[in-house]
Simulated assay, not measured.
Amino acid sequence: MDIETEREVHELTLAAIYHGRLLADEWQETGLVPLGTTKQLTQDLLQNLHERRELEELDEDRLHLLGEHIRKFTNQYREGLGDRALQQNIETEQIFDMKAIDLINLAWRWRQLRGAKRTLDDKMAAIKVTDRLLAQV
């Protein structure tokens, strides 16, 4: 792998770790408590994100699980807000409810983590495919 590719992978990894750590920290600040059969898995995921560990274990299913917790909790707080917050940016200038703002920001952070992790995964997949193709030449 050339130095430019290594730097790019490093930057993508850093972005995913950064957004994961901030998601875990902001999650704790909102007081969101996971419920149900996935409670322990979710708590373990958040702990790993907080400690900057096991990023490679954070697959699409686990990302989806975190997003579903945010969506459900936010929808319980204010009907439909979680659905909207996970799909699009919501301007908070005219919202004066700090809990709602915190939940909207948590959903935004989740979207940032999802985007960073998907970009990193795409880059790693591209490197593997490229290596295989070049080996055939």
Rank of each mutant, 00 (worst) to 15 (best):
A15H: 08
A126M: 13
L134C: 07
K72R: 13
R7D: 13
I90D: 00
G20H: 04
L41D: 07
T5N: 07
L133F: 11
I90Q: 00
R109A: 05
E54W: 10
R71S: 02
L35S: 12
R111C: 00
R71N: 04
I101M: 02
R78C: 07
A85K: 01
Q28I: 09
G67N: 04
L63Y: 01
G67W: 06
R109M: 13
N89C: 01
Q47P: 02
D59R: 06
E60G: 03
H69W: 13
D2I: 09
D121R: 09
L22I: 12
E68T: 13
R118P: 00
I3C: 01
E56H: 09
E56R: 09
K128P: 04
R71G: 02
N48K: 15
R114F: 08
Q28W: 09
Q43R: 07
A16L: 07
H50Y: 15
Y18S: 10
Q47L: 13
I3N: 01
W27I: 05
E68M: 13
A125W: 05
Q43C: 08
F96Y: 15
N75H: 02
I90M: 00
L23G: 03
I3D: 05
F73H: 15
F73E: 06
V137H: 05
A126Y: 10
D102S: 15
L106F: 01
Q94A: 10
L12S: 00
T5R: 11
R109L: 15
Q136F: 12
L23H: 03
T38N: 13
L55S: 00
T13Q: 06
Q47G: 05
R114K: 14
R52C: 06
N48M: 05
T13G: 03
Y18N: 12
H50D: 12
R71H: 04
H19E: 06
T38A: 12
K72C: 05
L46G: 03
Q40C: 00
H19F: 14
D61N: 14
K72A: 11
D61E: 12
F96Q: 08
T5C: 01
V33P: 01
G82Y: 04
N89H: 14
E79S: 09
L41Q: 15
E91Q: 10
L133K: 13
L12A: 05
Y77H: 05
V33E: 12
N105E: 15
Y77N: 01
G80N: 04
T130N: 10
R62E: 13
Q87Y: 08
M98F: 11
I3G: 00
A15N: 13
M1H: 10
G20I: 12
D59G: 07
M98L: 14
E11L: 14
L14D: 09
L12V: 05
M1Y: 10
L86Y: 01
R52N: 08
N48G: 03
G115F: 07
T13K: 06
L23C: 02
I127T: 05
T119W: 04
Q88S: 11
T13F: 03
A135Y: 09
K123E: 14
H10N: 09
A15Q: 14
Y18W: 13
A135C: 03
R111P: 05
R111H: 06
L120N: 06
R132N: 09
I127H: 00
D25Y: 09
K72S: 11
Q112M: 13
